[in-house]
């Protein structure tokens, strides 16, 4: 099953809508709770990142019985140093984002932690693509 979502960049309150819908769909399909949670959290952090840093983007989800693939695409400023961005606590988020409960530098590390495979392609000035896979053993 393939699902597509546009993540609006101008409305922080809506970040997480795609994750919520994917979670609901996976529950209906009978996936185990721990797999559903891994997908939900990884995608949720991705959505938040797209809204905070990139002015929104697009999410494509491919739900297969044994593997859930997440593709997050944005046309934001890109990530200058991906390995630095992957470090716990590293953040370029402005203070107002921290007041919203994010920007602690845990977004990408959390996505890595909850996905079984993750790849980031980013070009400064062009955008960022994140691919994640979560397996259902």
């Amino acid at each position: 099953m393939k699902l597509h979502f546009d993540v609006p960049g101008d409305d922080f309150t809506r970040a997480g809508e795609a994750s919520g819908q994917v979670k609901q769909k996976m529950k209906q399909l009978g996936f185990p709770a721990d797999v559903v949670r891994k997908v939900s959290i990884a995608l949720y952090e991705g959505e938040i990142n797209m809204v905070i840093h990139a002015g929104g983007g697009e999410v494509d989800v491919d739900i297969d019985p044994h593997c859930i693939s997440l593709l997050l695409t944005d046309h934001g400023p890109g990530i200058e140093d991906v390995s630095l961005a992957m470090q716990d606590g590293w953040s370029t988020a402005p203070d107002h984002v921290r007041n919203l409960g994010f920007g602690a530098g845990m977004g990408l590390p959390n996505m890595k932690k909850y996905s079984d495979e993750m790849e980031i392609e980013s070009t400064v000035g062009v955008g960022t693509t994140v691919r994640m896979k979560i397996f259902n053993p």
């Binding site: 309150t13 959290i41 949720y44 952090e45 409960g101 994010f102 920007g103 530098g105 845990m106 977004g107």
Partner: peptide, 28 residues
């Protein structure tokens, strides 16, 4: 993000954050 990173199987979230993301975090 700290809640999402370090918490496992907690049922109750205490927070001073009153925006919708507190609800969404609890949902996830």
């Amino acid at each position: 993000s700290d809640v999402l990173a370090f918490v496992k199987d907690q049922a109750v979230l205490l927070t001073g954050l009153i925006n919708p993301q507190s609800i969404r975090t609890a949902e996830m």
